[in-house]
Design a protein around this nucleic acid. Structure first.
Length: 415
RNA sequence: CGGGCCGUCGUAUACCGGUAGUACGCAUGCUUUGGGAGCAUGUAGACUGGGUUCAAUUCCCAGCGGCCCGACCA
């Protein structure tokens, strides 16, 4: 894309109504637009980052057998009353139509996913099943905060699984946990699978996936030697105490942000909806369910919190809005403009995802904007590089600059 | 929801009981062109509603909106 066509512009100053780093940087760089507290629109750059995160999540969910669906956002009130959530969950938005009918908008989708599965699962042969979607969620939070990390509207991947036995659930739970860790790794983050409370409907533990960041809302204790990690709210241990799993390391305390959660729902929802299937003995039994969430928009916020410096965002490669930021330093020189255009077309023709700063502005402004926007790889073409028959490649991460001969540019970018 | 702070051009801010200044942006022109250029000219503003006052953007009250701390967090 040509940057001269990008309708958003960067800002030098952070908005005064945002304190969180993620919101300040994303607004300054033109990724998001605030509608009200806790609700943001995603502009071209922000939208494409979300799409890249979704692509990773979709890929990993498909790999473990998830089937993607798209559930309704506007929900009838009946299933919510059936599970008790209508009266017991205070973040549920309630809508009254002009004919006085009650509706809700999805804050989670067990109430929709369970009846869908119920329609098709009639035999043990239909199990296991994992359905997921990536969609908007709405929660009537008393206090939105931390930019896009805790909003009233957000994007979530939510998966619901159905199993014949506890053993099969445990197997899938483990598989999903591994998939989740791959998702975060591909997003450039280090997440810890953290033992936490199982929520309202089970006494078992659940796993929360935590990324260490000072912007986080949770306190965790993690072992400095093994992968053990526990939410401080359910732990009797203290920082500096010994790890009870490996008996070698000691526990450290840190702030972290939850970027995913996986739950054992047991038979709670199957019972609420009177959902049974015929088992191998011809008996009607309830399936065991699990739910598996990843906050897509929160993940984007956490990435910005974790991957940024004083100049702006530093997107990890796989979620960078573009693979390459091509910057033309032309000084109005027509030959350089023509050469930059040629290189841009060459990159596009080779399927490289490129943002081309073809604007008629000075070098300093282009560099400052590029630092702020944070595309992982930068290519610079200027009088200096042209006389050498090369292009300058700079990594946003470490600032390392390399001169690359014209003829090798495509190969270097597609390696 | 309890507590605190705050609402001034598009953005960020200043001053003030007598209708508002600066910077950035934006527009036009000239110069400039590898780290947010310079000069000139122009553009654009007091959240809403009450109250006090000769006079309110300024003081008071309420509403609305925003941020923070806490609580909450299927």
């Amino acid at each position: 894309m040509r940057q001269s066509n990008l309708f958003t512009k960067t800002r030098k100053l952070a908005p005064k109504d945002e304190v969180s780093k993620n919101a300040q940087l994303l607004i300054r760089a033109g990724f998001i637009h605030k509608e009200m507290a806790g609700v943001y629109s995603y502009l071209p750059l922000g939208r494409v980052v979300l799409e890249k995160i979704e692509r990773i999540v979709r890929d990993e969910m498909n790999k473990i057998g998830g089937q993607e669906i798209k559930m309704a956002t506007l929900h009838p009130s009946e299933p919510w009353k059936q599970t008790g959530a209508w009266d017991n969950v205070d973040v549920v938005f309630k809508i009254l139509s002009r004919t006085e009918k009650e509706y809700t908008i999805g804050q989670s989708e067990e109430e929709i996913a369970t009846p869908i599965a119920q329609e098709y699962i009639t035999s043990y042969k239909d199990l296991p099943l994992a359905l997921y979607q990536i969609g908007q969620k709405y929660r009537d939070e008393l206090r939105a905060k931390s930019g896009i990390m805790r909003g009233r509207e957000f994007t979530m991947k939510d998966m619901y699984s159905f199993h014949e036995t506890q053993e099969d659930f445990d197997r899938f739970y483990h598989t999903a946990k591994e998939a989740y860790l791959r998702v975060y790794e591909r997003c450039g983050l280090v997440a810890k699978a953290t033992e936490a409370s199982g929520g309202a409907f089970t006494t078992k533990l659940s796993y929360e996936f935590m990324v260490l960041t000072d912007a986080g809302e949770d306190d965790i204790l993690y072992c400095d030697k093994c992968s053990y990690c526990v939410n401080a709210e359910i732990s009797d241990s203290k920082a500096g105490g010994g790890c009870t799993r490996c008996n070698i390391g000691s526990l450290a305390r840190a702030k972290a942000s939850e970027v995913g959660n996986i739950f054992d729902l047991g038979t709670k929802y199957a019972k609420d909806f009177d959902f049974t299937y015929k088992n191998r003995d011809g008996k009607n039994v309830h399936p065991i369910m699990g739910c598996f969430g990843i906050g897509i928009t929160r993940l984007m916020g956490v990435i910005v919190e974790a991957c940024s410096d004083e100049k702006g965002i530093v997107w990890p490669k796989e979620v960078s809005p573009f693979a390459v930021h091509l910057i033309a330093i032309t000084g109005g020189n027509k030959d350089i403009i023509a050469e930059a255009d040629r290189l841009y077309e060459l990159l596009v023709d080779n399927g490289i995802d490129v943002l081309f700063d073809d604007r008629d502005t000075r070098a300093g402004e282009k560099f400052a904007d590029a630092d702020l926007i944070g595309i992982s790889t930068r290519l610079i073409i200027s009088e200096k590089t042209m006389t050498e028959g090369s292009v300058e490649m700079i990594s946003r991460v470490d600032g390392v600059s390399t001169m690359i001969p014209d003829s090798e540019v495509i190969r270097r970018l597609t390696d």
